[in-house]
Simulated scan of single mutants.
Amino acid sequence: MARRPEAGGEARSALALPALLALALCAPGAGGQALEWYSAVVSLEYLDRQTNRTVCSVSESGRFGDSSPKEGALGLVGVPGARDGDPEGCAPDTRFVVPAPGGRGAAPWVALVARGGCTFKDKVLVAARRNASAVVIYNQERHGNITAPLSHAGTGNIVVIMVSYSKGKEILDLVQKEIQVKMTIGVGTRHVQEFISGQSVVFVAIAFITMMIISLAWLIFYYIQRFLYTGSQFGSQSHRKETKKVIGQLPLHTIKHGEKGIDVDAESCAVCIENFKVKDVIRILPCKHIFHRTCIDPWLLDHHTCPMSSCLLKTVERPLLQSPHNFL
C-alpha cells in the first residue's frame, strides 16, 4: 500500500528555509558592520543681563565626530565675525569673535560654526589654526533637532562635536549679543548600531528569492504527489467496492447431511486445507472450484483469481452459475 504523504510538517519546513537563511545572513557579524558613536554632554553658562543671574543648562544634545578624541573640552564660545559673512567658517582667513574681556588669547575658546559651505575637515582645520580647543558644528535648519555623523579624518586631536540647529542658534544669538558663553563638553553615552552593507543586502535578496523558488517548486511537486495519491486511494476504494459486489454475486451453499456431489471426508478447502463439514457455508467460483466463504472472500478481494486456477474474478458477470456438484 502506498504511503500517505505528511500533510503539513514538510510543507512548513520548506517555507521556513528562506526565513532562516535571511535571519542568519542578517544577524550581527554576518556580512554586516557595526557603527559606534558617542553622544556629547553640552553644558552652558552665561549671565542673563535682564535678571543679572547666571544661567546654567546641561543637555546630552551633541554628537562626537568620527575622528574626534572622546574626551572633554571647555572654553568661551567664539563665532565667525559678522564682517566675514561666513557663518560656516570655511574661509582660511576666517576671524572668530569671542566676547571676552581678554580676547581669544586670554582663555581657551570653542569655535561655533554652521554646517555647509565646505567639508567638516576644512571647518575644523580653519578653527584649529586659530587655536580653538574644540569645534562645535550646528546642523542645518531643515534637519530640525537631529545631529548627523561627522567625517573629518586628518584633523588631529581637536575635539569636534555636532549639535542641532536649534541648540546652535540659541548659542549663536547669545554670542552675537556679545554675551560671554562658557561651554563645557563632556563624553556622553556610547551607542552601537548594527547595519548591513549594500553588498550583503543584495546577497540576502538573491538568496531569499532563490530559496523561495526552490520552496515553491517543492510545494508544487508535493501537492501533485498528494493529489495523485488521493486519486489512487479513491480509485482503489472504488475498485474494492466493485470487487466486493462481484464476490457477493457468486453462489453460496450450505453443506447438509447426505450431500450429493461432495465427499465431506475427502474434499477440503484449498485455502485453509481443512475438510468440508456439514453446515459449512461454501462459495462456488465460475471455474467450478469450491471454498469456505470465510476463506475465499478475503483471498478474492486481494488477488481477484482462484487459488487453484487462473480463473479471474472479473470474468464473472452473472450470478447464476452452475456448480460442478449437484447440491439440489
Score class of each variant (00 low, 15 high):
residue 186 G to W: 03
residue 104 R to D: 00
residue 154 G to Y: 06
residue 37 W to C: 02
residue 18 P to Q: 06
residue 53 R to H: 09
residue 60 E to P: 13
residue 81 G to V: 05
residue 41 V to A: 11
residue 44 L to Y: 09
residue 300 L to F: 07
residue 239 H to E: 14
residue 136 V to K: 15
residue 193 Q to D: 12
residue 117 G to W: 11
residue 297 D to Y: 01
residue 316 V to E: 07
residue 16 A to L: 12
residue 26 C to P: 01
residue 254 T to S: 13
residue 123 K to I: 03
residue 285 L to I: 00
residue 207 A to L: 09
residue 150 L to H: 10
residue 183 M to W: 06
residue 206 I to F: 14
residue 282 I to N: 00
residue 186 G to H: 05
residue 254 T to P: 08
residue 8 G to W: 13
residue 3 R to D: 10
residue 157 N to V: 12
residue 278 V to Q: 12
residue 42 V to R: 05
residue 44 L to G: 06
residue 51 T to K: 06
residue 49 R to I: 03
residue 264 V to T: 15
residue 106 A to W: 00
residue 163 V to K: 05
residue 284 I to C: 00
residue 176 Q to L: 06
residue 125 L to D: 03
residue 17 L to F: 15
residue 120 F to R: 13
residue 125 L to A: 02
residue 227 F to R: 06
residue 265 D to N: 14
residue 162 M to V: 15
residue 249 Q to W: 03
residue 169 K to C: 08
residue 26 C to W: 06
residue 316 V to M: 15
residue 66 D to Y: 08
residue 302 D to L: 04
residue 97 V to Q: 04
residue 203 F to A: 11
residue 246 V to D: 00
residue 71 E to I: 06
residue 19 A to M: 14
residue 175 V to Y: 04
residue 117 G to Q: 07
residue 258 G to Q: 07
residue 254 T to E: 08
residue 172 L to S: 08
residue 123 K to G: 00
residue 131 N to W: 01
residue 324 P to Q: 11
residue 97 V to N: 02
residue 12 R to M: 11
residue 259 E to R: 07
residue 111 A to M: 08
residue 116 G to C: 03
residue 164 S to L: 05
residue 127 A to R: 10
residue 310 S to Y: 14
residue 294 T to M: 05
residue 2 A to M: 08
residue 216 L to R: 12
residue 182 K to E: 10
residue 204 V to L: 05
residue 216 L to C: 08
residue 11 A to F: 02
residue 49 R to D: 04
residue 176 Q to E: 11
residue 31 G to L: 04
residue 91 A to P: 06
residue 137 I to M: 11
residue 143 H to D: 15
residue 140 Q to I: 08
residue 20 L to S: 11
residue 286 P to L: 14
residue 185 I to Y: 04
residue 48 D to H: 04
residue 76 L to E: 05
residue 183 M to D: 07
residue 168 G to F: 05
residue 36 E to Y: 12
residue 26 C to G: 10
residue 54 T to V: 14
residue 250 L to C: 05
residue 175 V to G: 01
residue 131 N to I: 00
residue 145 N to A: 12
residue 56 C to A: 07
residue 214 I to H: 10
residue 214 I to F: 15
residue 51 T to F: 07
residue 211 M to T: 11
